[in-house]
Amino acid sequence: MILFDHVTKVYPSQQRPALDDVSLEIEKGEFVFLVGPSGSGKSTMLRLVLREERPTKGQVWVLGKDLNRLSNWKIPTLRRQIGTVFQDFRLLPNKTVAENVAFALEVIGKPKSHINKVVPEVLEVVGLEGKEGRRPDELSGGEQQRVAIARAFVNRPMILIADEPTGNLDPATSVGIMKLLDRINRLGTTVVMSTHDSQIVDQMRRRVIELEGGHVVRDQSRGVYGYAQ
């Protein structure tokens, strides 16, 4: 599903690599935590999967494709199979909940009838039924993140990438978001999530990849946060 083969990423204008010779594989259906201190390279890994960045050395394979050899015009096709969720939600403030989710389908040219069918469905999955007509500023942080997850999941992607999705949320709300991501994982989507939150990692008992200074310092299934120290 996702394969990093001796991947090194050095940003232009930077001396130290953000990722240094990273190799790992993530299988279909897995739920993977990406942990490590700030600046350890978590977001860089996720951006490489989305082909927002290219590796300086090595190869990244996603859904059977070598991203180094993927031509620019095929990037949209790749991204349609990957849902993305961020710490800052990235919703459109002047659109309602339903419109925010529908936007993701409209811009890839899905027909209206399809949109009208799947948007209510996915809003029910994330637990936002009854709030379709609200705008983001009329929602709590947890609800806004649910909208973002609905938007990421509405296309039933193969992979869901979440970069610190609970970073802006209180612990109780975070638990709800984790339950939702777990549910999405059980529906068959591979989930890769970066986080700082040790409690969450401990509770979920899933595979943990720990980065430090661009190196993988731990990769264990059913891990506990910070075990390596």
């Binding site: 990037i75 949209p76 993305t84 993701a104 938007r151």
Partner: peptide, 17 residues
């Protein structure tokens, strides 16, 4: 840029953006 970055993220084609 908000709209267009979301469009890119969800896989809208350059043409559509």
């Amino acid at each position: 840029r908000r709209e267009t970055s979301i469009m890119r993220l969800v896989g809208a084609s350059n043409f559509y953006i």
